[in-house]
Design a protein around this nucleic acid. Structure first.
Length: 544
RNA sequence: GGCAGGGUAGCUCAGAAGGUUUAGAGCGCACGACUCAUAAUCGUGAGGUCCGGGGUUCGAUCCCCCGCCCUGCUACCA
């Protein structure tokens, strides 16, 4: 029975290159999941895009004295390039600058307004009289009221780490003009989050398949009580408010960004020449939606976006939000874009094959706690695990078949109990590993797949086909035949994680890509198949 | 400060409605076997006060309390 799965992935800001932490935290797990779902025959729609609005983009643009659009035009292609190279299989990766996204966002805004979930209220804000504009907290600096640090930012003091309110800064100054900002009242639209508190609590409380930290954290926030939140800003970069009299304001970034999941599905449908097909992914309650995000993003996906969906009506709430922790870099330092300590994924891809990176990152996915990225470890994991356990297994079996059977798949006439038990281990692994993929436990899926490879290595050692060839070629033929069947099975098990190299392997085994992706089970390699004489799937890496 | 997650072998991590565990796996390390294979594989072994201190209990690494450390959020930087 084919199911329909929406794979929604966090929208990266298009003002920086992608760093490894983002890939491991959201995009790689989402891709593994999507590939698994496609492999077992489910209908998958995987979408995301560049988040093009928001303060970080305008800050970058202002600093370089270019337009926000220029920043997006520079980084969006780089993001696409990263997906292409590491193999993140989006059905659509768009941007929040499309006409479709603007329309969808304004539609959601209008609908929430007419349903009574938006209202206007006044808010005090800092205003720069010289440059004649309202200032986000980040655009204000001054003396920290707590530690007297003289260059504290309006949102946070870099010296003592305190969270600040720009209004509290001593001797505040605009970073645009240096002028002393004044406080002005401004009218904004607010999202009536408080109206959804009970419904959300009930909904979240029943999500027993969510990760513990995601559920507890969300319930904790709900217990503190939801406050209504302003969704417009006095800025010029963003989606216009579709109401007369508010031409100088824009819808704020977090409101439009989450709507991207919906607008991207619409865009995908339109480009597929079936403009209504997005509805199956949003309105059919049997469709399950998974949101892959980092832990800093949980509230937006378990409270705010669900509230917006409830307010809009008739659209599916998230089925699961498997938020990940963070990947840290040397000595617990967080992978930070703003500090410029990046291990950019594109740089890594210049040096290493995509599957080598995917293998290592999968092994350290921060599913339950923060993990640490070390390039030395990447090299070791490639040499000591990927190649030693798996690559070498493939290589030794292929080599023996080419040496003793001219590269033709040997026959298996009598099957021994050893062979039967190996194959049954593999076939039952499809169930346990399939369950792990379905539960978004990708490290487990990888570990168990390697365990099967190890069993196959052990089988080979026990059967010693290199010895048997001398006195009992039938015995050797059986061993190598069964080993190839095992390899075919393991390749399938690993395919969501290592799509590039396993596809190559499948070709070497005589399959075409059509054969691979239709069932979640071992593809049997028929006797007599010509096995390609190929170079090794992976190469050893020097650790300088 | 408050809330949440984490603190387990050299490294990366599992785990446990509290007793079947003398606390597990992989890698690394030591030794042995094998030699088909990318010095790969297979076996054996060493290695841990499960962050610290109290408490509950017949029994706690797992529950409670108090600390310490890392990370995120704290509603205007998703």
């Amino acid at each position: 029975m084919s199911e329909r799965i929406l794979v929604a992935v966090a929208w990266p800001y298009a003002n920086y290159l992608l760093h490894v932490g983002q890939v491991a935290g959201a995009y790689l797990p989402a891709d593994i999941f999507a590939r698994y779902q496609r492999l077992i025959g489910n209908e998958v729609l995987m979408v995301s895009g560049s988040d093009c609005h928001g303060t970080p983009i305008t800050v970058t643009a202002d600093r370089e004295n270019v337009s926000p659009k220029d920043i997006v035009d520079r980084y969006h292609p780089k993001i696409l390039e990263a997906w292409e190279k590491i193999g993140i299989s989006f059905d659509l990766f768009t941007t929040t600058l499309t006409e479709n996204h603007y329309e969808t966002t304004q539609d959601v805004f209008t609908k929430l307004l007419s349903e009574g979930y938006l209202y206007t209220d006044k808010q005090a804000q800092l205003y720069d009289p010289e440059s004649d504009r309202f200032l986000p907290d980040r655009y204000v600096e001054g003396i920290c009221p707590l530690c007297s640090y003289k260059d504290a930012r309006g949102d946070q003091c870099d010296s003592c780490g305190a969270q600040l309110d720009a209004v509290d800064l001593i001797e505040p100054r605009s970073i645009i003009s240096g002028a002393n900002p004044e406080i002005r009242e401004s009218e904004h639209f607010f999202l009536r989050l408080s109206a959804f508190e009970e419904k959300l609590r009930e909904w979240v409380g029943s999500q027993n398949h969510w990760r513990r930290n995601v559920k507890n954290f969300t319930l904790g926030v709900l217990d503190e009580g939801l406050k209504d939140r302003a969704i417009t800003r006095d800025i010029s970069w963003g989606i216009p408010v579709p109401i007369d009299g508010y031409e100088s304001k824009r819808i704020y970034v977090w409101f439009d960004a989450v709507i991207g999941y919906l607008s991207a599905a619409k865009e995908w449908a339109a480009s597929n020449e079936s403009p209504e097909s997005w509805k199956a992914f949003w309105e059919d309650e049997n469709t399950r939606s998974y949101y892959f995000i980092g832990k800093d993003n949980i509230v937006f996906h378990t409270i705010i976006w669900p509230a917006m969906l409830l307010g809009y009506g008739n659209l599916n709430l998230p089925y699961n939000v498997p938020a990940n922790q963070y990947v840290n870099f040397s000595k617990g330092q967080k992978q930070s874009k703003s500090k410029g300590t990046g291990n950019w994924i594109l740089d890594l891809l210049d040096t290493y094959d995509p599957d080598v990176i995917r293998f290592y990152l999968t092994s350290i996915l921060p599913e339950t706690s923060d993990s640490e990225f070390q390039e030395e470890e990447l090299i070791r994991s490639n040499n000591e695990m990927l190649i030693a356990t798996w690559g070498n297994l493939v290589n030794r079996v292929f080599a023996m078949i080419h040496k003793n059977f001219s590269g033709e798949m040997p026959s298996c006439n009598n099957i021994s109990t050893e062979s039967i038990s190996l194959l049954s281990e593999i076939d039952s692994a499809f169930e346990t590993i399939g369950n792990a993929y379905a539960a978004c436990e990708f490290r487990t899926a990888l570990r168990e797949s390697l365990r099967i490879a190890q069993l196959t290595n052990r089988y080979l050692d026990t059967r010693a086909p290199w010895k048997a060839i001398k006195e009992d070629p039938e015995h050797t033929a059986e061993t190598l035949n069964i080993s190839i069947q095992a390899i075919s099975g393991i390749a399938k098990l690993l395919h969501p994680i290592l799509p590039h190299s396993t596809t190559e392997l499948f070709e070497n085994l005589g399959f075409d890509s059509e054969d691979i992706g239709k069932n979640w089970s071992r593809n049997s390699v028929p006797e007599g198949t010509r096995l390609a004489k190929s170079k090794a799937l992976y190469s050893k890496l020097e650790s300088d």
